[in-house]
Design a protein around this nucleic acid. Sequence first.
DNA 1: TCTAGATATGAATGTTCGTCAAGTTTGAGT
DNA 2: ACTCAAACTTGACGAACATTCATATCTAGA
Lengths: 214, 214
Amino acid sequence: MTVTQPEPEGRVARRQRRNREALIISARAIMSEKGIDGATMLEIAERADVGAGTVYNYFKSKDELAVAVLEEMMSSLSLRIEQVTDTFEDPAQVYAFGIRTVLETATRDIRWRQLLNRSEVLADAMYRRMGPYAIRDLKQATAAGRFQAEDAELVWRLACHAIIGVSLSITAGEIGEDRITDVVVRLLCMTGLDLAAATDLATRPRPELQPEAG
Amino acid sequence: MTVTQPEPEGRVARRQRRNREALIISARAIMSEKGIDGATMLEIAERADVGAGTVYNYFKSKDELAVAVLEEMMSSLSLRIEQVTDTFEDPAQVYAFGIRTVLETATRDIRWRQLLNRSEVLADAMYRRMGPYAIRDLKQATAAGRFQAEDAELVWRLACHAIIGVSLSITAGEIGEDRITDVVVRLLCMTGLDLAAATDLATRPRPELQPEAG
DNA sequence: TCTAGATATGAATGTTCGTCAAGTTTGAGT
DNA sequence: ACTCAAACTTGACGAACATTCATATCTAGA
């Protein structure tokens, strides 16, 4: 082994990376505008500058492509939340900030709205991509005596389904946006906090999120 | 007005009632077996013994038909729960029994499983068709000092999304069926109960539900 | 019985997903 | 520099399906 280069990445690998990224970016843009059902595979392929059949070399189905888009969105938002909360002392507060931010983003960001139908896919993507952070916070807060949530995974899964579902209800106008704090309070109750403590945590002053890069 | 008959229901009205009911029954059977996407409008029409176009005289779209099916299922289950709980003294216990029963039915009844994708539609049907009972229980329990849930509608909506979503996770094997009690506990926490009280309520002995008629 | 309006019918339409045979690119070995 | 097999791309195509619409049928009242 005399190779000292980290990885010479040949043209194939480079093209593959480009195509995959271009497809996700294209799909995200079109799905955000027209919804998952409204986006056609042909239009996605055209905007990504590849043939219609090529999409299927990267994603087995339209659904798999949609999942990739949603996961990319979740990962990206997780990182932005981390940037802001890494100075927080109280893990309970990190958790509270996180769930509120997702709720607000899902209901306010136009690009998220169209993706809210298919909530089961979105909730699942959220469980997996944001779970590492959220479950960590839940466990730390439990260890610190702030929460009573030994079964952090279960609480987090319930929260995911509730958050995505309620976002849909808010977008549909069935719940007012002014109720977001009440929703956060109830979700915090699931961690074992009593109503007063949950209300206190949900109404603390919060920092601003950094705007999304790109 | 000399008419004393309650309503003479002519042949048109009778046929329309028959067709609508036959379509919902047919759609429910086929969608339960093959899922909403897997069921074709033609097959639904054939089993209901009407022409393919006739379906559209009763339901604007496949989606609207699916909603009708889900609502019928929810209403039916609500009534069966009422039959069993009308002797309960504690409204908190009625609520606890209700959410557990939906959770168990959704995960154990084969006919519900296939309908769990499209969870947003199902959660919405649940909010509307079971809401009258659940919200009544939440308010009564709050008035009795058992719960702290003045905003019963909001708590109920969160519960609907969480229940349907978690049912999906259980069906997918991501959560064990043995965790149902834990889920119920956390959902009860949202009503303002502390963890100990919620655990107590969720683990009380429960009566059996009557088997479904028909 | 006759007729106008309501309802049912199912073949035709238009759209979309996913497949496939044919063509193109790549890079290792000579 | 050349060859070749493997890997990748392409876009036309088939199959499936929701929905529409022109036509046929039925109903209730005159």
